[in-house]
């Protein structure tokens, strides 16, 4: 959780300073959901993510240094600079991609769960998606298919109270989004997304059901994003007081309090850990800044596994021109 908080806080600062190209969506405030859920998964399990995906990546074990390089659009980033913040993926690590399309992840998770059945594996697939995505048709289709085919899938809604700039109650006609699970005849729960153990326990149980062939589970985690939908969002849809109510229930502070109380760590140890992580993220920034950009000819690579003359003629032309801009 601390790594995510540190990484995304830094990403926000860098974006504000004009350091990062494109745009970024930050996970600050929602850390307990990603970390609680991924902690309940096995290493070979799959996740699908969202446009707000940095937290999911880190929770699934991706390297913050390689992620930072990708945010900078550098060679050596997870996508060699082709994806950026919204498309970090590492299929080998079970991370099927952050996703710029709201609601596009759950069908992919249904497919990864289908692979598990087809190959007789014991993996499960978990889809993270937001409250806004619950209104998307393809999310309904994906859950219905997973439920009807009894696939080992877990659907985790991160209800951060706003779909872009519109409050959740203006987008849905149910009190709790988990009520929609009834329509698929699968278990649905709403848990406190600011409580990492609550999320962990719910996903652990869902994983057990999935692995036992009992089909998917729908989990709504109530959480909050401290930053705007995107960095630079002026947030006219809420007040500072609205945000403070949730910050008072901060997942990291709450969990730290419990650990200190239980004697697992001391305040000093926590501070030391935090400082270490902050330093690691600072180092990642330095490394990313120093890393080279991809060679321009890389723009013509990676489209297909096959060689396609329509594209290769451009890269050959670049070589003929000595790599100069044409």
């Amino acid at each position: 959780m601390l790594t995510i908080r540190s990484f995304d806080t830094k990403a926000g600062d860098l974006f504000a300073d004009g350091e990062l190209p494109g745009f970024v969506h930050l996970y600050v405030g929602e850390e307990a959901v990603g970390v609680g859920a991924c902690s309940a998964l096995e290493e070979n399990d799959y996740i699908t993510s969202t446009h707000r995906g940095h937290g999911h990546c880190i929770a699934k074990g991706l390297d913050p240094n390689v992620m930072m390089a990708e945010l900078y659009g550098k060679a050596g980033g997870y996508c060699n600079g082709k994806g950026g913040s919204m498309h970090i993926a590492d299929v080998d690590a079970g991370m099927l991609g952050a996703n710029g399309i709201v609601g596009a992840g759950p069908p992919l998770a249904t497919g990864a769960a289908l692979t598990s059945v087809l190959k007789g594996e014991d993996t499960v697939a978990l889809a993270f998606f937001g409250d806004g995505a619950v209104a998307q048709g393809q999310v309904h289709e994906a859950i219905n298919i997973a439920a009807t085919w009894n696939l080992p899938a877990i659907f985790v809604v991160e209800n951060n109270q706003y779909g872009e700039a519109t409050p959740v109650e203006k987008q849905h006609n149910v009190q709790n989004l988990s009520e929609t699970a009834e329509a698929y005849n699968i278990p649905g729960f709403t848990v406190d997304g600011m409580d990492i153990t609550a999320v962990y326990e719910a996903v652990k149980e869902a994983r057990k059901r999935a692995a036992n062939g009992e089909g998917p589970t729908f989990i709504e985690a109530e959480t909050y994003r401290y930053h705007g939908h995107f960095e630079g969002d002026q947030q006219p849809y809420r007040t500072k007081e609205d945000v403070d109510i949730w910050k008072d229930r901060d997942a990291i502070e709450t969990f730290k309090g419990r650990l200190v109380e239980a004697g697992v760590i001391t305040e000093d140890e926590f501070d030391e850990m935090k400082a270490e992580i902050d330093q690691q993220i600072d180092d990642a920034v330095v490394e990313a800044k120093e890393a080279p950009y991809p060679d321009p000819s890389e723009a013509y690579e990676d489209m297909y596994s096959a060689t396609v003359p329509e594209i290769s003629q451009f890269s050959s032309q670049m070589r003929a021109d000595g790599g100069e801009d044409r």
């Binding site: 099927l96 069908p107 497919g111 289908l114 692979t115």
Partner: peptide
Amino acid sequence: TRVRDTPISEAGFMGAAVGAAATGT
């Protein structure tokens, strides 16, 4: 299992195909 009738959910099963292909089928 290998010849699957789907619900009338083109977006859902098309997406499932993408997810299945990315994971080894």
